[in-house]
Amino acid sequence: MAAPLPDVTLASPLPPPLPSLVNARRLRTQRLGRALRLWVPVGVLVLILAICFLLPLVVTLPSPTTGNIIYNNLPPFSPGHILGTDVQGVDVFSQLVYGGQVAFEVGLSVTAIGIVIGGTLGVVAGYFGGGVDAVISRVLDVLLAFPALVLALVIAEGLGPSEEHVIWALSVFGIPVVGRITRGATLTIRGLPFMVAARLAGTRGWRIITRHIVPNIIPTIVTFSLLSLGVVIILEGALDFLGYGIPKPTPSWGNMIANGQQILSVQPEYVLIPSIALLITVAALNMLGDALRERWGEQ
């Protein structure tokens, strides 16, 4: 007679994770993703700004405009020239650093002018409406009708090549764009209940604008300004590349790309280095703008 089989109790399967734990894990993952989308571009921009503006104050860099022809076309990581030299023997890293200063100076100046002038026009048009809105909107529409680069080329050609003229030429592009954005944001806020209550309480128009409208459209302006800053940096480089922007031998990323055409087949890194710097800067600005828009949109 066969021996009876032992009584074996099968282990029950593991219970499924509690919904609360799954949700908590998902929330932590989402928060980490949002934090990375925000702080990675911030870190990249801080690093670029530190290299362009702080490094020359700490380290003595070679001249970005003059060099020794004997040491021309040195490859990257040559002694004393971390990124090599160009056809004139000028240090590439110095040109990159000081060219970054020019890019941010022009970009921030154009963005600031656009916010002050275009933002003021947009808020005034959106709040007062009527004939004021019609006149300002038509002026902004006329400026927006022209292609930005073509209009900047015409203005830069008429004024002559210089950093100040590039700033004003590109500001003609920035003012109407910011004006349309702020006008739309003001129209959205103007019909909200707290705005109606402020008008019924007899609050003056300019006080409503400064106390209620401007603080509420700041997130929109900041987000758009970051995106606009990247576009302005690209346009500044395009003007330099075409010979209508920063005059040579002043270093700029656009001038470096233009000069690198002469040795593109021999030393392509001279074109790639400023192009990569331009790409990283603009990408970081766009990522930061998108991250801020996402974060402020959830509040």
Rank of each mutant, 00 (worst) to 15 (best):
I82F: 14
I82Q: 06
I82V: 15
L83Y: 12
L83R: 07
L83S: 09
L83G: 05
L83D: 08
G84D: 10
G84K: 10
G84T: 10
T85H: 08
T85D: 07
T85V: 10
T85Q: 08
V87H: 12
V87D: 14
Q88A: 12
Q88V: 00
Q88H: 10
Q88M: 14
Q88G: 14
Q88T: 03
V90C: 06
D91K: 04
D91G: 04
D91A: 04
V92R: 02
V92I: 15
F93C: 03
F93W: 14
F93E: 06
S94H: 09
S94E: 08
S94F: 02
S94T: 11
Q95K: 15
L96H: 11
L96E: 12
V97P: 00
V97G: 00
V97D: 00
V97M: 02
Y98R: 10
Y98V: 03
Y98C: 03
Y98E: 05
Y98H: 15
Y98S: 08
Y98M: 07
G99P: 06
G99V: 03
G99K: 01
G99D: 02
G100H: 09
G100D: 07
G100F: 06
Q101A: 00
Q101Y: 01
Q101R: 15
V102T: 15
V102R: 11
A103G: 06
F104M: 13
F104H: 05
E105D: 04
E105L: 14
E105C: 02
E105H: 01
V106Y: 09
V106P: 09
V106A: 10
G107A: 13
G107P: 12
G107Y: 06
G107T: 12
L108E: 06
S109Y: 03
S109P: 01
S109K: 03
V110Q: 09
V110H: 07
V110A: 06
T111G: 02
T111D: 01
T111V: 15
T111W: 01
T111C: 12
